[in-house]
Amino acid sequence: MRVALGVAVAALVLVGCGDSGALRAAGPTATAVGPVRLWPHLPPASTPALDYGEAVTETVKGITVPGDDIRRVDPLDVVRAEVAAHPDAYSGPHAVYAETRERLKDCGAAGPQGRRCPVLRAYYRDLTGDGKDDMVLGIRFPDDQLAVRVYTVEHHRLVQVMGTSDSVINVELAGGTVIIRSPSTLPGYEFRTEWTWDPHQHAMLATRDEIVRVGTAPPRRPVAPAPSASPPASSVPSVSPSAVPVPSESAR
């Protein structure tokens, strides 16, 4: 009985393994197309392009960092130090951020006045990879602009390693990256910029900037045909001779 059962199982295994294991064609494969260099005889540029990734850092004067712990630094003091360091932008005769400087007086107040404070809540995250928290700070500017600042501690000093301002939809933190989403004039799209720490520049750089589809663009209206100077020949009514009235004898 055991021998017969073993033969039956072996037969089932052989039947189930009808595939020989040989390679099979997966269908036609698209031909790989490599990059094609346009205008190969064009000489290379001798001057650098726009410094989009230019690193801008600044040591914040007048601010101490107790124990090199950035969480012990008052964000309001940091913004006041920026105002003092840039009088032309905040308090000069042509200061574009004079309103922001005036609204600093409302910080710490209770009620509606307190909500006018332009300094937003600070967030803390290790963005530089040194194992210590850095500070992300937002400052509301006039005309619905938002300034985003990132500060770190270097050699016992507070250093601003990122500074930008723009119309903003929201700001996100993903790992060590600051992502800023901004509105676009194109319906259904937005701008998205990623700022990442660069150890060579010792600054946060805009390492990726893209325009992203986020919705359905409204359908385009059909373009009406331009009016013709003269009506088409087919639209001019034809008059046959039989349709022309003939005067009667009494009218002659």
Rank of each mutant, 00 (worst) to 15 (best):
G34D: 15
G92Q: 12
D68Y: 04
A26E: 13
A26N: 08
A81I: 08
A84V: 08
G131D: 07
Q113L: 13
A26P: 04
G21Y: 04
A55C: 08
K132H: 15
A110F: 14
R80P: 05
T100L: 03
P112G: 04
R101P: 02
A30Y: 00
A45T: 15
R115T: 02
D51H: 04
A25K: 05
R116E: 10
I70W: 00
V13E: 11
D51E: 03
R115W: 08
A84S: 13
T29I: 12
G21A: 09
A122P: 07
G129P: 01
R115L: 06
D133R: 09
P118T: 08
P40D: 04
P75Q: 00
L23P: 13
L42Y: 08
A49C: 05
D19P: 08
D88M: 05
I63L: 09
R103G: 00
P43C: 10
P118M: 05
D51S: 01
L38V: 01
D88K: 07
G92H: 11
R103K: 10
D134V: 04
V33M: 09
A32Q: 11
D106H: 15
G34E: 13
A26R: 14
P35K: 13
V56W: 11
D69F: 09
D77S: 12
P75L: 00
A32Y: 13
R71H: 13
G129H: 03
L38P: 03
G27N: 06
A84R: 15
V13G: 12
A22C: 05
S91G: 14
P48F: 04
E54C: 06
P75G: 01
D106E: 14
K132T: 11
E99I: 00
G27Y: 03
Q113P: 02
V56Q: 12
P40S: 01
V65D: 11
G131Y: 13
E58H: 12
V36F: 06
R24I: 00
D88C: 03
D68I: 03
G34Q: 09
R72S: 00
V33P: 03
T57Q: 14
L23D: 11
V60R: 00
A109G: 00
V56M: 12
A98H: 14
M135Y: 10
G62T: 07
A89T: 08
T31L: 10
E102Y: 02
G129C: 07
A30F: 02
G27I: 06
A85F: 01
G131Q: 12
W39Y: 06
A25S: 14
A85P: 04
V73K: 05
R24G: 01
D106L: 13
S46C: 03
D19E: 15
G108R: 12
D74T: 10
E58Q: 11
L38D: 07
